[in-house]
Design a protein around this nucleic acid. Sequence first.
DNA 1: TATTAATATTGCAATATTACGATAAATAGT
DNA 2: ACTATTTATCGTAATATTGCAATATTAATA
Lengths: 110, 110
Amino acid sequence: MGITKTEIFTDQQNQVATFAKAFGHPARVAILQHLFKIKACICGDLVDEIGLAQPTISQHLKELKNLGLIKGSIEGTSICYCIHTENWAAMKAVVSEFLNQDLENKSNCC
Amino acid sequence: MGITKTEIFTDQQNQVATFAKAFGHPARVAILQHLFKIKACICGDLVDEIGLAQPTISQHLKELKNLGLIKGSIEGTSICYCIHTENWAAMKAVVSEFLNQDLENKSNCC
DNA sequence: TATTAATATTGCAATATTACGATAAATAGT
DNA sequence: ACTATTTATCGTAATATTGCAATATTAATA
């Protein structure tokens, strides 16, 4: 049905999935990488930097902002986006815990 | 258009996105966690463990297998799935590099 | 070989995502 | 106030994803 049954999963599982979904598109990966690289936060040269139309970039930015991973502040007519470092760290903690799981014992079949 | 323009991104960006998409659904997060937890690899009790229909679980397993994150071996009539540890480590390296980016300088606006 | 058990595949309906043109909203400068 | 610039929103088309019932496949066992 295209709808995810979030009710049957734990909060932690849903959180990992939600954050991971944010990185599940190369445009958002590219946006975040650019914001990390450019020390000063960047506004809409993202549209030039990445090869997508302005409304598309704006939409991706909105998703990242809704998740709290970036924040934007008005600079005249343009808007300055940057990484929300505290929230990024929090997200990283959740996702890293998932990624860094270890096999307790060696598996006995595969 | 629902179609992602992968051509305009780097291989690394597409890789991060592809792996992240695998974790972008709580069912797949749950499946992977269960495979990590249960030392011996598990077959189709995943259907009982997680509350989704058998075809749905089978589909999620297929995606994870296609990405190389899990592997399955036939055990009689059932199939034994487990984490593909080498590939998991490789994935972790790619995703971690993305997550662990650091801001070079403090941002000057937000 | 017929039956049973476990998993995979097919087909389909519902919803989500991606992308962009057109347009609106906000602000700066004239 | 008018214009230009920048970003957001709306509307819509195309594609992707999720989920499951029905069915097929595979392997063990009677």
